[in-house]
């Protein structure tokens, strides 16, 4: 059994505004092992992005534990969390991923500079990683000279170059066409497996789930179900393969679940609020 790098226990995030109390995340317990790539899916407002933000140390949980490499993020102060993000987390975003005035190579090197690990060897590693991602002829291009897919590949390289424990991706394919989206997530998955990282990708595009090892579906701030069976994941990812131009809404896909998931036993039920 692989060692869990990331573990959360009963994580809750409550937003209060006057008399209004909203539970964005409600008692979520998940775990991700080394070399495991998770797809975090769910409809808008299901709490998946809030969960990702807490895992990235960008947001404090109201309750619960968020352990990465044995350290509880919820017990850290701002300075410690900033340092933790720099050293232990790799992050790609939906947009605005790159520093516009740094070249592709410099953007990747940025993480090494932040961690004071830059130098000739670091630069070579960054160049090698970008080459591996098919960016060898774009090393010295500025982000504005790169396509959306190329920018995401640079962001992936930046997320991995400093050897983090956990790699997080927030909607990495949101602004990409299908072909490029597939390329990017495929590369992402390969590198996570190869480098034994714990990877979590938040996505609305279920087709991208074919590259993950486990799908966690969130609804209304809670984990609705966890899909681990390969066939079930592939089926989920394939629901929209006949209509790549309009991906059905997540709610619609799960409403049709008995028709498209061959073996209901592959779903692992999660009791809300249970340990």
């Amino acid at each position: 059994m692989t060692k869990n790098i990331l573990e959360t226990r009963d994580v809750t995030k409550v937003y209060e505004s006057g008399n209004l109390v909203v539970k964005a995340v409600d008692g979520v317990s998940i775990s991700v092992g080394a070399g495991e790539f998770i797809g975090l899916v769910g409809p808008s407002g299901s709490g998946k992005t809030t969960m990702l933000a807490m895992l990235a140390g960008l947001l404090n949980a109201t309750e619960g534990q968020l352990n990465i490499d044995g350290q509880d993020l919820n017990q850290m102060n701002d300075v410690q969390r900033t340092r933790f993000r720099r050293e232990k987390i790799g992050f790609t975003f939906q947009a605005n991923n790159l520093v516009p005035y740094l070249t592709a190579l410099e953007n990747v090197e940025l993480m090494l500079r932040l961690n004071k690990k830059n130098g000739r060897e670091g630069r070579q590693r960054a160049a090698d990683l970008l080459t591996r991602l098919g960016m060898d002829d774009r090393l010295n291009n500025l982000p504005k000279q790169l396509s959306g897919g190329q920018q995401q590949r640079v962001a992936i390289a930046r997320a991995l170059i400093h050897n983090p424990s956990v790699v997080l991706a927030d909607e990495p394919t949101a602004s990409l066409d299908t072909e490029r989206a597939n390329q990017v997530v495929q590369i992402f998955a390969d590198l996570i497996h190869e480098q034994n990282k714990a990877g979590i990708m938040v996505t609305h595009d279920l087709r991208m789930c074919k590259y993950v090892d486990k799908v966690i579906q969130m609804v209304d701030g809670k984990v609705a179900r966890v899909i681990t069976e390969r066939a079930a994941i592939d089926t989920l990812a394939g629901t929209s393969q006949f209509d790549t131009l309009s991906v059905p809404k997540m709610e619609d896909q799960f409403q049709n679940q008995p028709l498209i998931i061959p073996n209901p036993s592959t779903f692992v039920p999660v009791r809300i609020g249970a340990d």
């Binding site: 960008l58 933790f84 992050f91 516009p100 932040l114």
Partner: peptide, 16 residues
């Protein structure tokens, strides 16, 4: 603002 937000998100301190 988005660029500064991204820099902070990847671990750049306020000091920098």
């Amino acid at each position: 603002v988005p660029q500064i937000g991204m820099l902070k998100a990847i671990g750049t301190s306020n000091h920098i």
